[in-house]
C-alpha cells in the first residue's frame, strides 16, 4: 500500500517537474559537461591557505586557534606516538587509559603500560583514531567507517586524539571530493565519510560557545611525518 502510494507520488513529482519546465533538454552528456564546467570556478572561489605546503597550512590554522578546541603536534615516526599520548594524559591530568582504534599499525606499538581498550560508552574516556586524510583548508581530519573504524569512536569520548599521516594531508575540500569520487569508482565507498574540524560545540544557550556538547571537548591532532 505504502509502496503504491510512494510510486504514485514519484510519478506526480516527475510529471510536475516536466510540466513546469517543458523545454529543458535532457541530454545527459550536455548536463554532465555543464556540471563539470561549474567546478572549474572553484580555483577562484576558495580561500587562500596560510601556507602553500598543506601540512604547514593545517598546522598554522590550528595554532592560530581557528579550529575550535584543537591543538596539534608533529612526530617523526609512529613509534613516538605512545610518548605523545602520555604527554597528553599529563597535560589534562588523565589516567593512562585510552581506546585505541583496532588497526595493526596502532595495536603493535609499544604502549608502555598504557591501557588501550577503554570503554567508549563511558563519558570522560580518551579515544585515539587513525585518520584517512587531513584537509588544510578547514583544519579537518577525515575518517571512513570500516570494520576497524567505529564511527562512534570519534563522537563518544570527551577527549580525542586523531593521528594524520603527513602524506595524506590535502590542500582543499575539493581535493578530498576527487578522492571520494575515485573510491566510489572502485565501488569501495564506505558507509560514512566524516570531515571533522574541531570539537563538538554549541552556542544554543544565550549564544555562548561551550565545547563538549555531545562529543569531544578536547581534540589533539598528531601528524606523523614518516607516514
Amino acid at each position: 500500500m505504502n509502496k503504491q502510494k510512494s510510486e504514485l507520488s514519484r510519478t506526480k513529482i516527475f510529471s510536475a517537474i516536466k510540466n513546469a519546465k517543458p523545454t529543458v533538454t535532457m541530454d545527459v552528456k550536455t548536463i554532465q559537461q555543464e556540471a563539470f564546467e561549474l567546478l572549474k570556478e572553484s580555483e577562484f572561489a576558495r580561500p587562500k591557505l596560510l601556507s602553500e605546503d598543506a601540512t604547514q597550512a593545517l598546522v598554522l590554522r590550528i595554532e592560530a586557534g581557528l579550529v575550535i578546541g584543537t591543538s596539534c603536534e608533529k612526530i617523526s615516526t609512529l613509534d613516538d606516538l605512545p610518548n605523545s599520548v602520555n604527554q597528553f594524559f599529563d597535560k589534562h591530568s588523565l589516567p593512562q587509559e585510552i581506546k585505541v582504534q583496532g588497526i595493526d599499525k596502532l595495536e603493535k606499538l609499544d604502549w608502555e603500560g598504557i591501557s588501550t581498550d577503554s570503554d567508549i560508552e563511558n563519558d570522560n574516556t580518551v579515544g585515539l583514531c587513525w585518520a584517512e586524510y587531513g584537509v588544510a583548508e578547514t583544519g579537518s581530519f577525515v575518517v571512513h567507517s570500516s570494520p576497524k573504524m567505529p564511527i562512534l569512536l570519534n563522537f563518544l569520548p570527551l577527549y580525542l586524539i586523531a593521528v594524520i599521516p603527513k602524506s595524506k594531508i590535502l590542500h582543499y575540500m575539493d581535493d578530498y571530493a576527487l578522492i571520494a569520487n575515485e573510491i566510489a569508482k572502485k565501488g569501495e565507498t564506505p558507509r560514512n565519510m566524516c570531515l571533522i574540524s574541531g570539537v563538538s560545540g554549541t552556542t544554543d544557550i544565550e549564544g555562548v560557545l561551550v565545547q563538549g556538547a555531545h562529543g569531544p571537548e578536547v581534540l589533539h591532532i598528531i601528524i606523523v611525518e614518516d607516514q
Partner: peptide, 24 residues
C-alpha cells in the same frame, strides 16, 4: 549562518552498514 569558516562535523552517509562494519 554563524560566521564560522566551517562547521565541526560534515558527514556523508552512504546507505546502510557494510558487512562487518564496526557500527552503523
Amino acid at each position: 549562518a554563524t560566521g564560522a569558516e566551517i562547521t565541526q562535523y560534515i558527514t556523508f552517509h552512504n546507505g546502510s552498514k557494510r558487512p562487518n562494519d564496526a557500527d552503523g
